[in-house]
């Protein structure tokens, strides 16, 4: 009888610690993903970049998107504002997107269509949709709410010669993937690789950080490590998109007015040239 009680007690203890450990592991994984989000989408207080996207079909046919990206963080929250202004190709030249991003709820998004001089709100539900026909989704460009997935730390391993955490993320509400594996640099918390698995649990898309540079910024001695070239590849179609950040400036001092309806129609020249 006694032994039976002891066994039960032990089992309970093990179960409780097991559950706690698992919870802690989840917490650790979530924390890593939050740090990754910070390192990848939030560095600096504001940011200015000229971005080139090369869309390449399996046959090698190339299309090009050139845009200016301006971003500013809300100092009080995880909210961010983005202004994206297109330089190329011709049919979208001067088109601009304004995004007010709120993790945890739908973003506010507006588009400026230069041909008819019109500012319109656009539906925010399409955050998993392709960004301007590329392999990147809107969320790949401006980040995904960390709490939208359940994260688990699978293992720690080297990617090339960089020590990484490997996190598995499962969407809490149905998305275009059922599982995502993320390789996060242990030192810089930069996102180095992602694998997206579709409903059949087969590998569908792969993200790779191809080139990392330290971008000089006042107050940070060694600069801010930044992925300046990245690729998203659709494994099934062979189509891929390579994005290059040609000139990045952190903390250039973007004014709040840069992220307004006025700026959509009258783009701030000194920041987009």
């Amino acid at each position: 009888m006694q032994r039976w009680k002891w066994s039960l007690f032990l089992i309970l203890i093990l179960a409780v610690t097991g559950i706690t450990a698992q919870a802690q592991e989840k917490e650790a994984a979530t924390e890593i993903m939050q740090k990754k989000e910070q390192a990848f989408y939030y560095p600096g207080t504001d940011m200015q970049a000229r971005v080139t996207m090369e869309l390449v079909t399996a046959e090698g046919q190339k299309r090009l998107r050139v845009l200016s990206m301006l971003r500013k963080n809300d100092p009080m929250s995880m909210n961010q504002k983005y202004l994206l202004y297109f330089h190329e190709p011709g049919d979208v030249r001067r088109t601009a997107f304004l995004v007010w991003k709120y993790p945890g709820r739908d973003d506010d998004r507006w588009i400026f269509i230069p041909a008819v001089n019109m500012v319109r709100r656009v539906a925010a539900k399409d955050s998993r949709s392709s960004f301007v026909g590329s392999d990147f989704t809107y969320e790949d460009v401006s980040g995904r709410d960390v709490s939208a997935d359940t994260h688990t730390l699978l293992k720690e391993e080297k990617l090339g010669n960089v020590d990484c955490y490997v996190i598995q993320s499962v969407p809490k509400t149905p998305a275009d993937y059922i599982k995502k594996l993320t390789w996060v640099d242990k030192k810089t918390f930069l996102l180095l690789k992602e694998e997206y698995y579709d409903e059949q649990n087969t590998l569908a898309r792969i993200f790779t950080a191809d080139k990392i540079e330290n971008i000089a910024v006042d107050g940070v001695a060694q600069g801010i490590p930044t992925v300046i070239r990245r690729t998203m590849k659709n494994v099934k179609s062979g189509h891929y998109t390579q994005t290059t950040f040609n000139s990045i400036a952190y903390n250039p001092g973007l004014e709040d007015e840069v992220f307004s309806e006025r700026a959509l129609q009258n783009p701030p020249q000194k920041w987009i040239k």
């Binding site: 200015q48 000229r50 000139s247 400036a249 250039p252 001092g253 000194k270 920041w271 040239k273």
Partner: peptide, 10 residues
């Protein structure tokens, strides 16, 4: 005239 104060990488 406007070049001098221009900021960024233009």
């Amino acid at each position: 005239e406007a070049q001098a104060p221009a900021v960024g990488n233009s």
